[in-house]
């Protein structure tokens, strides 16, 4: 399987050198904010991001808001006993000294009520609200529908 990974990684790097901005808020570092192109505006979009907490105090992501969607919510995909469900997640813990990922198959933002379809290459602002650190706004890059995530190695991040 190893030999297959390299060419694929190179293709990703060549096509999606985005979503590599890093924003800090106190002890929190927020990076790799990305979304996927949507099929029309009637289906929800997704929001993924990486948050790391270098501090000594636990924090939590308690909300997201964006002009791109009327009803953005935090969810978690849970696969239990062979069944996937998507319970609404009120808060996503960001423990001291740890990193949390909103990533395919786990925590994610579900963006309902899109004002317009998202197209690859689009960029929209997303405000994250943390229990303790407060609010911060990041730019979210829209990657192609089939993207598995941003690749930022070539961007020096």
């Amino acid at each position: 399987m190893k030999p297959l990974i390299m060419p694929f990684a190179l293709i990703l790097a060549a096509t999606t050198a985005q979503a590599c901005e890093t924003v800090t808020l106190g002890d929190l570092t927020i990076e790799h904010a990305w979304s996927k192109a949507t099929i029309g505006a009637d289906r929800p979009a997704v929001f993924y991001v990486e948050i790391s907490n270098r501090g000594a105090t636990d924090d939590a992501l308690v909300g997201i808001s964006t002009p791109a969607a009327g009803m953005p919510m935090l969810h978690e995909t849970v696969v239990k006993d062979g069944v996937a469900s998507m319970p609404h997640s009120m808060t996503i813990p960001v423990p001291a000294g740890q990193a949390v990922q909103l990533a395919p198959g786990g925590y994610h933002g579900m963006l309902m009520g899109l004002s317009a379809a998202l197209k690859a290459g689009d960029r929209f602002p997303m405000t994250l609200t943390f229990e303790k650190a407060g609010k911060v706004t990041v730019n979210v890059d829209v990657l192609p529908l089939r993207a598995e995530g941003p690749d930022c190695l070539d961007a020096g991040q």
Binding site: R43, H75, A84, M86, G105, R146
Partner: peptide, 17 residues
């Protein structure tokens, strides 16, 4: 289901690949 934002697109992307 087509309204599913996370699991379904991820799996169908794998199928497409």
């Amino acid at each position: 289901f087509t309204n599913c934002p996370d699991v379904c697109p991820t799996t169908l992307s794998d199928v497409a690949q």
